[in-house]
Each structure stands twice: as structure tokens, then as C-alpha cells.
Amino acid sequence: MTEVTTGAGGPESHAKHVVYCGVCSLPPEYCEFGGTVKKCEEWLKVQHPDMHERLYSEDVINANMSSLTIEAQKRADKDAQKKAAKAVAAEARALEIKASSKILIKRVERNKRKYVTAVQGLEAHGLDLKKVAKDFGKKFATGSSVTKLPGGGEEITVQGDLSDDIYDYLVETYEDIPEENIECIEDKKKKGGG
């Protein structure tokens, strides 16, 4: 789709360009149903002040309210509150998971002097394993792949003993991962201490 950004020109000639909210990804007019209204509103105010005015001015809100019966309004309000609470809780949980989840870099002995390095837990930080694996391969000029773990889940396996290099690389490139969440472990045959 190359020429869809021709503004709000007539839909007869060209595709209509729709702005989507940067917070909840819906068209801004639907933000009020999303549960993150406050954030959406702030975002819109910064990004599209004209649209903000149109959607969040008092008259509009009042007009919206008056089109429903009082009873329905109450129910909708309750629902919206519930939804907002849910959204907040979900966000908090996601943050917590992110903060507490560790990245494990394991050096696994493959054949006496040969090692592979396994990296686990990257997906919890919102990274695409396939892409990261490719990056590792490029950076260290070795084979690097995503392998499935027997217990479910996936890890990245990099050929060669690269645990320290990967540690440095991760710290450097992904700044939003706290350094103390990355841990190097030496894995003997099955499980060993680091």
C-alpha cells in the first residue's frame, strides 16, 4: 500500500486515511470503549490537537450521554470502570513480569572442548526470538537458531562459547532490559551451579 497516505481526501478517488490511537490502536473515536481513555486522550492531545478538540469537548460528551437512558448510562459507566481497572491491572502485571523475568545465558558443553550457548527468557522482554537469533548469528558470525524446549517454550541456541559476548551485546543493544536481570550460567551435563 503505497499511496494511502493522501490525507482525508475523498474516498471516491483514493483510500481514506484513518488515524489510529497510539495507545490502544483503535481509531480515536473508539478510545472511550478501550479502558485506557485517560492515556488515549493525552496522546491525542499531543498528536492530533484538532481531533482531540472534536472528540473530547464538553458538548460532545454531553451529547453522547444524553442519547442513552439513565439506566443504560449507569450500566455503561460501571462497565467502563471495570474495564479500566482491568486494563490497569493487566498493565501492572505485564510490567511486573517484565521486571522479574530473567534472561539466562547458558554455556552448554557439547563435546569436551566444544560449547553451545543457550539464551532463554528473551521473549518475556518483548523481543522476537527469530529476529534476535538472526542478529546473534550476524554479530558473532556463527550458527544461531531458535530451538524448542522439551518443556514448552523456545530458546536461542548459538554455536560456540559466547556467553560473555552475548551478555555484553544484550546489555548494549537492549537498554530497556535491566542488567541485573541477565545471568550467565555454566551448564555441565544437565544442571550445574553458576
Binding site: 494511502v4 474516498p11 471516491e12 483510500a15 481514506k16 486515511h17 484513518v18 481509531p27
Partner: peptide, 9 residues
């Protein structure tokens, strides 16, 4: 829906 938004008519 992204397509619908672009060509609503």
C-alpha cells in the same frame, strides 16, 4: 477492518 477503514464506501 483496516481495509474497511480505507475504503468505507
Amino acid at each position: 477492518l483496516a481495509v474497511v477503514h480505507k475504503y468505507p464506501n
